[in-house]
Structure formats: C-alpha cells, structure tokens
Design a protein around this nucleic acid. Structure first.
Lengths: 226, 226
DNA sequence: TTGACTTTGTGCATGCGTTCACAAACGTCT
DNA sequence: AGACGTTTGTGAACGCATGCACAAAGTCAA
C-alpha cells in the first residue's frame, strides 16, 4: 500500500514551481563541471534565500551532506525524478503561428524529457510543412495521431477564438494535461489539468511597477515644490 | 504631499497579478455589450472566488454599487488606470527569432497600451527586415533609437547565452523595466525591475501533476492486487 | 580520538494571502 | 415611506509560505 515516500509526500505548489529553476541552475553547474554546491551558493545563483532552498529540497528527501553541501548531479537527478522528467512526455502543439513555432524550437521544451510528437494547424497553407522533422497536420488527424503515438500533454498556441474548440478536441482524445497560451479561460471536465500562460500579464505587471516608480518620484518632486 | 489615494495605496502583489485577468474578462464582456456584472458572475468567468475578487477590487477603491454590481466599462477603466495602461508604454524587443516575432504580433502586446517602437537583432541576415511596420536593427543602434523614441520596457527574447549582454545594453541605455524570456538569471543594478518568464516551467509543473495522477492510480491498482 | 569548523535539516515565529460571514448600502415594489 | 431582496466592502479567522536560528551531522586536521 505505501509507495515511494518521496512520491507520496505532498510537495507544496510553491515548491514545485521553484524546482524547475533549481534544476536549470544545477544543469548549468553540471555543464561547468562543478561537482557540488552548498545551499548558500545555489540559492544565490537562483535568486532565493538559502533557508527556502533547503526547505524546498527537504520535501524531496534528504539528499545533502552536512558540512559539505549537495552533489550537483545527484540533486539534479532527484529533482528530475520528483518532477517526473525521468520519463519522456510526448507533447503535441496545436497552432503553428509564430508562437507555436517558437515553442517547438524552444530548447527548454525539447530537452528535459519533453518530446514533440505532433504539430497541428488547420490552415491549409501550412499543412504538410515540416518543422524540425515533424509534419504539420490538420487537427482532425488528432485521434489517429494519438492512437499511433499517444500524447500526454497538449499545448494550445492558437488564437483565443479557437482555443475552446481545440481544447474540446484534446479532451475528447483523452488528453488530461493541457497548457494554454491563448488568452481565454477554458472550461474542461473534472480530472483535466489546464494551466494558462499569458505572455502579456508579465508586461502589465511590469507597467504597474514602472508607473508606481514614476508616481512616487513625481510625489517627491511635488512635495518639494509645495 | 498626499497624492491620489488610489495610486498611493499599496496593492498586494498577488492582487496585481490578477488584475490583468479581470481586465481581459471585462473587455470581453464590454465587447459583448454587457453593461454590468456582479462579483459572483465576474469571478466565475475568471475562475476565482467572488470574495477574492471583491477584496482585490477594494484595493483600487470603491467602484461597485451594492445590490447591483459593477459597471463593466467603468471598472475596466479603473483597472487600466491602476495598472498604468491608460498611458502608452513604448516597448523594444531584442531577439527576432520565432519567439520575438510571436511577441511582436501577439495581440495582448500591441493592444492594452503597449506600443512596439523598436526591434533588435544582431543576425545580419534579418537586419533591415520589416516586421509589422517596424524595421529590425542591430543592437548597437539601441542608444540612438532610445534617444529618438524613448523605450520604457525592454523585452529579451534572445538565447540564454546573449541575455546578460543584451540586458547590460538595455540598462546602459537607461531602461529600468525588463521582461526576460531567456532561461537565464540576470544580474542588474538596484532600481532595475526584471521579470522572467520561462515557457518550460509550466510544462514541467504540468508533468509533475500528471505524474502524480499516474502514481496515485498505480497505487490504487497495486493496493487492489495485493 | 578529539576538537574545530562547516553546512544541512527543521521547529518556531512571523507575515501574507485567502476565505468566511455579515453589516452596510443600494434598488425596487407596494 | 417602508419593507424586502440583493450585492458590495471588510473585519476576523484561518492556512500557507517564508525567514530565523540552532541542534544534529558531517569533514578535516592533528
């Protein structure tokens, strides 16, 4: 009944969101031939507090050595395992505009256990086109494609107007993990996990902070001249 | 000394991150000709709890009418104002690969007060190319471009290896708001606001949850067969 | 082995964010 | 005008995440 304690233990969402950052930095360190790091060093490289890093890692188990630090390669492997990146995740991308093409060639996508197995777009002018070894097919081929080479994760990179239709097709095919880049809220049945990425939100947050800086300095000036 | 209370009041980061979502949904409602919404309806459309929505909006001021709801157009305007989107934000994008092109044509970028004033790329083969009315220039033109048409926000859409160099150039030119799509941690002087977007992190989080579902159902099965 | 030093893992406190629950405020109907 | 139903705005409770501080556990030198 009791499975691997590492997998059964609840890992906080906030921690899960940071694990990819740790993993990327660890991979860079490994590439540089660094054998081990302390929590202090790794935290500084990622941009978090060392206490936070240690607490995050403690949720995965006890992989550090007191007085020494963490073995870079081993820790990277453990984080990969925790995230589920030690197995391959077949990914399909729907919508082959600039964003879809950017995603299919994005290094962070093709490495790290994600394998693009299908590209879809209903625009006849791009149908059949080859993108990095994978042909673009119309969405109606999804069931056949899924049967031949099962898809674990569907990525929606279409305009907002098509997003729900595409989502329905993905769910219909039995795909339960969906990453949505379209600026639309998708409704899905229970058991389907949808995550949305809005490229413009970060820009708006940036504008908010920039504006606040401007207002703050304007306040200072008007306070002086008053 | 006391400026506009709406601008001076501290708005929590978590709230700021949701305001763009509210704004997008409100814009859609306005397009559909809906004159007003209750917090319950709007919250459902966005995918949050109504109490959270009301508390978020309360940070901007009191723009609802008890017993009635919120005026869609007015609330949209107030959120725009709070985010600083009522003024134009000149944006420059560095790196005109697929991602840079996707961003420059992204509807959420060009609408909502963001105006792309410059595109940079040091690849000679794309230099001078016209993308939606803006010519691609080499990064060394940044100071001149900035002087002629000031840039408020710089977007880095280059490979990770070039990100820090590009960032330095942006900071050197006096740009204090930077959106970084490259998978690299940037070091900047104090007073410069950097936000990072990693397109692969969401995919990794999705994989984590998908894996957990798989493990959970495997546990159930093994529990039965035991 | 012993002692000095380093670094992890974690209990505890603090702060922030979310949710509940309700009084206050509005429109409407009689 | 007054009673009624609706919805906002917010104080208070709760829960989660972060940061502190230190004991436990290791290395290394002598």
């Amino acid at each position: 009944m009791t499975a691997d304690p590492v997998l059964r233990r609840e890992i906080p969402d906030a921690t899960v969101a940071r694990l990819p950052e740790y993993l990327r930095t660890l991979s860079a360190l490994a590439d540089d031939g660094v054998p081990s790091v302390s929590s202090e060093e790794l935290a500084a490289a990622v941009g978090v507090r060392s206490a936070q890093l240690r607490k995050d890692l403690s949720h995965l188990g006890s992989y550090g050595v007191r007085g020494v630090g963490y073995d870079v390669a081993m820790l990277a492997l453990e984080i990969s395992r925790a995230l589920g990146l030690t197995v391959d995740w077949p990914v399909a991308i729907v919508g082959m505009g600039n964003l879809g093409r950017a995603l299919s060639s994005y290094s962070g996508f093709v490495t790290k256990g994600f394998r693009i197995v299908a590209l879809f777009d209903d625009d006849p002018s791009v149908e059949g086109e080859d993108v990095l070894g994978t042909a673009i097919r119309p969405l109606r081929d999804l069931p056949r494609s899924h049967a031949a080479d099962p898809i674990a994760i569907g990525v929606i990179a279409t305009p907002a107007s098509a997003a729900q239709t595409v989502c329905n097709a993905l769910v219909q095919a039995g795909i339960t993990s969906i990453l949505n880049f379209a600026p639309a809220v998708l409704t899905v049945p229970a058991g389907v996990d949808v995550r949305r990425v809005d490229l413009s939100i970060e820009l708006q947050i940036l504008a908010f902070h920039a504006q606040r800086r401007t207002v703050a300095s304007a306040d200072l000036r008007s306070a002086v001249t008053r």
